[in-house]
Amino acid sequence: MQYLTPSTFSDAIKLATDASGTSRFLAGGTDVLVQMRADIFTPDLLIDLKKIAGVGDITREADGGWTIGVAVPGAVLREHSDLGREWPGLVEAVDLIGSTQVQGRATMVGNLCNASPAADAVPAMIAAGAEVSVQGPNGKRRVPVEDIPTGPGQTSLAQGELVTAVHIPPRGTHAGDAYQRFIPRTEMDIAVVGCAINLRLDGDIITEARVALGAVAPTALLVDDAANAIIGTSLDDAALDALSAAATAACNPIDDKRGTIKFRKHIAGVMARRVALQAYERATAQAGEKA
């Protein structure tokens, strides 16, 4: 096995494209290195992205949005002074991944490209409306997060393509996000159901919403029906019931040792309701702050 540290994304892509055997990109390594140690997969070429300029940066853009480097670990995200204030749901979702030790390494992009349906960061990124920059042999493109995973362990990235940055939209005002998951214990676990909601208010009426579910289908889901159930409402009981029903209906989970289909669908409904209330509360509080 060969280990290389290119200094630009273009070089990294060229290495991957020219490789005769299998190759893997390495950022945090919490998936790749574990797979190698456990003899699940050992690539012929390991391309470390951490020497590329900017991959460890969290940058405020002119429009108020954020660009996050592909090698920014969870611990750095959590300790950032502004990001978590604007996007608490997103940062909390990343913070739920693994243990303290894993947090020092694991990245949002790794969580996305590993393409587990149960990834915690992914529903939160989708709800936030995040996009990623993708670069490959045929140039660059910008892709909504929900279009990256296509199935368990599968992504829409073509051979030689890689994600080069995450873009979080400007927070704006009167808005809030939240992510919660169900696990059978209290920490260091894999979501049985995850739910992220991001919404914006005008007064007490929801004007925009995005609802995403994790671990209940082959990929994280952006559930428009669930969003529509609460847009135009003040999140009254009727809206919450409709949201809950839409979330349950959107699930297409598997029956396995972590949870039965019936249980997961029920939990998705309960989670959606709770997450919506938390996001709504945060949006209300943020509106108060700005005023």
């Binding site: 059978p184 209290t186 040792k257």
Partner: peptide
């Protein structure tokens, strides 16, 4: 959890949960 053909389905910490410090 064993399936009906006798395969242990919970053979790793990803599926078999022991208490953590937080529990």
């Amino acid at each position: 959890v064993w399936d009906t053909s006798g395969r242990l389905q919970t053979h790793a910490p990803s599926t078999y949960k022991i208490p953590t410090c937080a529990d």
